[in-house]
Amino acid sequence: MELVFSAQVIEWRGPSPHYFVPVPDEESADIREVAAMATYGWGVIPVRARIGETAFETSLFPKDGGYLLPLKAAVRKPQDLTAGDDVTVEMTVRLRT
């Protein structure tokens, strides 16, 4: 399943800050339809994603009926991303075979 969406980078403040891109409601609903074929446990969904020129693999975190795309420093720094920035995400949900 391939998705393209735009959203704003958010910062999750905890013991150490983490950055995420919330997956919009429509795309989250599409992901929920295939979640059983993708998840490997705990509700996380493996994906391949691209923001700008930076491609990466990670897992979406379930949150309040939607999903959060985590952004490691290795993704944020080349694109100079911080909380509040608008980004366009190209993402492929990796289904188990």
Results as ranks from 00 to 15, higher is better:
5 F>C: 06
5 F>K: 05
5 F>I: 09
5 F>Q: 05
5 F>N: 08
6 S>M: 07
6 S>C: 11
7 A>I: 00
8 Q>I: 12
8 Q>L: 06
8 Q>M: 08
10 I>R: 09
11 E>F: 07
11 E>Q: 15
13 R>H: 15
13 R>G: 04
13 R>D: 11
13 R>F: 14
14 G>Q: 13
14 G>R: 09
14 G>P: 04
14 G>T: 13
14 G>L: 03
15 P>M: 05
15 P>E: 14
16 S>A: 08
16 S>I: 14
18 H>G: 07
18 H>W: 15
18 H>E: 08
19 Y>E: 02
19 Y>R: 10
20 F>Y: 15
20 F>S: 04
20 F>K: 09
22 P>I: 03
23 V>Y: 10
23 V>M: 05
24 P>I: 09
24 P>E: 13
25 D>P: 10
26 E>P: 04
26 E>F: 08
27 E>Y: 02
27 E>A: 13
28 S>W: 06
29 A>C: 01
29 A>T: 13
29 A>R: 15
30 D>R: 14
30 D>W: 10
31 I>S: 03
31 I>Y: 05
31 I>E: 09
31 I>V: 11
32 R>E: 12
32 R>N: 05
33 E>Y: 00
33 E>L: 11
33 E>S: 11
34 V>F: 09
35 A>R: 06
35 A>Q: 09
36 A>L: 12
37 M>Q: 14
39 T>P: 07
39 T>R: 12
40 Y>D: 03
41 G>L: 09
41 G>W: 10
42 W>Y: 12
42 W>K: 13
43 G>D: 05
43 G>A: 02
43 G>S: 06
43 G>C: 06
44 V>Y: 12
45 I>N: 01
46 P>E: 00
46 P>F: 02
47 V>L: 09
48 R>E: 15
49 A>K: 04
49 A>Y: 13
49 A>N: 08
